[in-house]
Nucleic acid binder design. Structure first.
Lengths: 226, 226
DNA sequence: ACCTGAACACCGTTCAAGT
DNA sequence: ACCTGAACACCGTTCAAGT
């Protein structure tokens, strides 16, 4: 949230990694992953590509850092929930909303397996899984399942946003088209998808997402010795 | 198809879409997504980039087609399982193994939301969800949850393979490094991940994957009126 | 109908040179 | 220490010209 006063020579103040990350987030929000270019970044920061490379190792490094900034921001609020189940839902919804607002985060998350952004999420989930009373030996599988499910939805979300952007459609028109395609599938080969076509347009992404979380949590609880 | 005389210059036989897709799969298997280049493709097919564009709309089209070829191949075997639960597990494992063998499929799947490769998987899962006795109104959420979970694991798998390739490490060394990083995390902030670090190296990806499927299926069954 | 290959418009990254 | 901007190696895509 700074100015970009231009006095004309060099830079009065040295560039910071944080400035670069914020500019990257802005570009990504504005025009998705293809919008993040060293060219566009240079222009936005009124500098050359070389200057950026002084603070950032690579484009992938920058993307992960931008992703981590969003994840950190998202998980920073820690309301204490009544039950671990509720806490897991809250974490999941917070992430869902963040990824909905910044679809590129969905893809960026998976570019950095085992890296900080993912670890932060894994940790949060794992702590709640423990609180659920799941024995240590099974907590890994349970937390991983939750993480992978969230990542799957995140990826889909990112992909949908990208496709919609490329085709220049907003969400409802996009769903309409997919729905139309699905309705024309062969009735014998695709009975389920055909009947699902009708539900596509009306459905609530976040609600479906939460339904999946509930399936998982209830399955995890059922599997744990009580 | 049938031309006989071999006159020798140019191409004796016209290029086919299938040939191009097979060449693409070969490149992708050999060197991952960055390996799929129109340059490399041209060389492999002994032609120019323009020729390829006659049969294929774009790189993304080609990637989706290659992905679909693998998915189709994977789902082509339809052994009749005793129960829907078993069938879901079988489908999931088949996909897991295919994505393990062709990690780029994991990423490619999510590039094409609502497209054929994903629809094929969705359909298979949906049919089994129906067979499980889940009412139509909830079948959508159930099938979506399964699909998203599988996609999440697939994405992770793709990302891991990519990272391992970039760093030039094989799997065990890679896990070692991640495990080492996790062990050094702050003990107060990351208790769960730290303790999970030890399990990272020994764990069985496919087993964990199936555990997640089981959580979901059991949650889905529990939610359905019996 | 289908192929050829040069040309175009980018893009990430590097680096010698500056301050 | 940090910035500048030209240069490099590459990439997807197009297209006039050929057969």
């Amino acid at each position: 949230m700074e100015k970009k006063s231009t006095t004309g020579q060099r830079r009065e103040q040295s560039l910071t990694r944080e400035q670069i990350i914020n500019a990257a987030i802005q570009l990504l929000d504005d025009s998705g992953e293809p919008g993040l270019t060293f060219q566009a970044l240079s222009k936005l920061l009124a500098t050359g590509p070389g200057a950026i490379y002084w603070h950032v190792a690579s484009k992938s490094d920058l993307l992960t850092a931008a992703c981590d900034a969003i994840v950190t921001r998202t998980l920073s609020t820690t309301p204490v929930e009544a039950t671990p189940e509720a806490a897991i839902s809250t974490i999941a919804v917070e992430l869902f909303d963040a990824i909905d607002a910044h679809p590129w985060v969905g893809a960026a998350l998976t570019y950095a397996p085992g890296q900080l952004p993912m670890v932060r999420i894994f940790e949060r989930l794992g702590q709640q899984v423990r609180a659920l009373g799941v024995p240590e030996s099974e907590a890994w599988a349970a937390a991983s399942a939750l993480l992978n499910y969230i990542l799957g939805v995140a990826c889909q979300n990112a992909a949908n946003a990208k496709l919609a952007r490329v085709h220049g459609l907003e969400r409802s028109r996009f769903l309409e088209e997919v729905s139309a395609t699905w309705s024309q599938l062969d009735a014998n080969e695709y009975p389920f998808t055909r009947s699902a076509a009708g539900q596509l347009q009306g459905h609530d992404d976040q609600k479906d997402f939460l339904a999946g979380i509930d399936f998982l949590v209830s399955g995890i609880i059922a599997a744990a010795p009580r």
